[in-house]
């Protein structure tokens, strides 16, 4: 259950990005499918952890980014569940998307 640690880092990241007198209303995060983060647990951790922080009155939306493997040479995508090697070039695939753990956007009001 490292989702609590991630929320702790998220709140720190928000604090570093906004002015002291800001009220945070909403934060948008992007979580990749193979980032190793469970979105349901992350949402629960946020509900519990935000109390007493500058995110206390903020909502969080999570955008789930599907894993996308591709050949580094011909850029052809690898089908889901298939061997992670390009059938034509025989190159080991590269993860093009799906490992994000990113704070994307903050909506706030400054007093």
């Amino acid at each position: 259950m490292h989702e609590y640690s991630i929320i702790e880092s998220l709140v720190d990241s928000v604090a570093a990005a906004v002015p002291n007198n800001a009220t945070v209303h909403r934060i948008d995060v992007r979580i990749g499918e193979v980032a190793g983060v469970d979105c349901t647990l992350l949402a629960t951790a946020f509900e519990v952890f935000r109390a007493g922080t500058l995110c206390e009155r903020a909502s969080m939306t999570i955008e789930r980014i599907p894993a996308q493997w591709e050949c580094p040479r011909c850029k052809n995508p690898i089908a889901r569940g298939a061997f992670l090697r390009c059938a034509s070039c025989n190159e080991p695939a590269r993860l093009a998307a799906g490992d994000e753990i990113v704070l994307q956007r903050i909506e706030l009001e400054v007093d």
Binding site: I6, S9, L10, S13, A17, V18, V29, I101, V102, L103, Q104, R105, I106, E107, L108
Partner: peptide, 8 residues
């Protein structure tokens, strides 16, 4: 809105 795009 602030676009942050920072790794958590």
């Amino acid at each position: 809105k602030i676009d942050v795009q920072t790794r958590i």
